[in-house]
């Protein structure tokens, strides 16, 4: 079980009625998602349920078609007022994103990957950025690999560089989009451990994941998404051990390998 937060926290992120379609295909059909500071929500659900699209809407990698998003108590986007380029950039500096396929910069070393946005987005000095990068890469267990390029690292190592890269921006919230799906099962554990440490350290997080054990241990709340809607929402125990909805039960059983 995750280390509980101390007392009620203020709402950091409030997404209301998020809708998104591609052509005639409705991916998100009105999703409400509130997140308190220090809270960790895991999103589970079948492929195509809209999990990834939902978290990609939260840093505007996808533009939602409808709804509203408040961050830190301020309205940053709604369907009537499209966000300006400068505002979406400012928002993205506060939101760390970890992708399924790592997306490390291929021509940069691990250290350079973690430093580049510190220098060019935040305006830190090269020295300050590299110092911070070394600290973070050490924290994720990669101090031996500072000068390696992504191609020389395993999937698990690449993903830990990617986590360090996102943390280097000192984000207020971290988004994880199926961070272990592209990694060999054996190599996942290190990534999951880093994520669990983050959650226990009080980082505000949303993780889209198929790792139920991780969600059970490290999430405060679990959302089950299917067909673009939240089918059920509850504590990890409620969702994994005693789901109320038949659809949730089916999914949990199927992924857990219960026939």
């Amino acid at each position: 079980m995750k280390t509980p937060n101390n007392g009620p926290s203020e709402v950091l992120l409030a997404a209301q009625g998020i809708r998104k379609s591609y052509g005639h295909l409705e991916i998100l059909r009105g999703i409400d998602l509130n997140l308190g500071t220090g809270e960790h929500v895991s999103i589970i659900g079948p492929s195509g349920s809209g999990k990834s699209t939902l978290i990609r809407c939260l840093n505007f990698l996808e533009m939602p078609d409808g709804g509203s998003i408040d961050f830190g108590g301020k309205r940053i986007w709604d369907e009537k007022s499209p966000i300006k380029e400068a505002d979406s950039r400012a928002h993205r500096t506060k939101v760390g994103m970890v992708f399924q396929s790592f997306n490390l910069f291929a021509t940069h070393t691990a250290l350079q990957n973690v430093s580049i946005a510190q220098v060019h987005t935040l305006g830190r000095s090269r020295k300050a950025a590299d110092d911070r990068s070394r600290e973070l890469l050490d924290q994720v267990g990669l101090s031996e690999h500072l000068d390696k390029h992504p191609g020389q690292l395993s999937g698990g190592q690449q993903q830990r560089v990617a986590i360090a890269r996102a943390l280097a921006m000192d984000p207020e919230i971290m988004l994880f989009d199926e961070p272990t799906s592209a990694i060999d099962p054996e190599m996942r554990v290190e990534v999951l451990r880093v994520m669990k440490d983050l959650a226990n350290g009080g980082m505000t997080m949303i993780s889209v994941t198929h790792e139920f054990n991780f969600a059970r241990d490290a999430a405060d709340r679990v959302l089950f998404l299917a067909g673009g809607l939240i089918v059920e929402e509850g504590t990890p125990d409620e969702i994994f051990s005693a789901p109320k909805q038949e659809r949730t039960q089916q999914f949990v059983n199927a992924v857990s390998g219960i026939v």
Binding site: N59, L61, R89, A90, R92, T93, V95, M97, F99, S101, F102, N103, L104, F105, A106, T107, H108, I116, A117, H120, T121, R165, A166, M169
Partner: peptide, 23 residues
């Protein structure tokens, strides 16, 4: 260049010029 490289640049709010020249 894979789309993920562009998306990572966007997600980290790298200025467009930096994204082009360095990534």
């Amino acid at each position: 260049v894979p789309r993920g490289q562009w998306e990572a640049c966007q997600a980290m709010a790298l200025p467009k010029r930096v994204a082009y020249l360095r990534v």
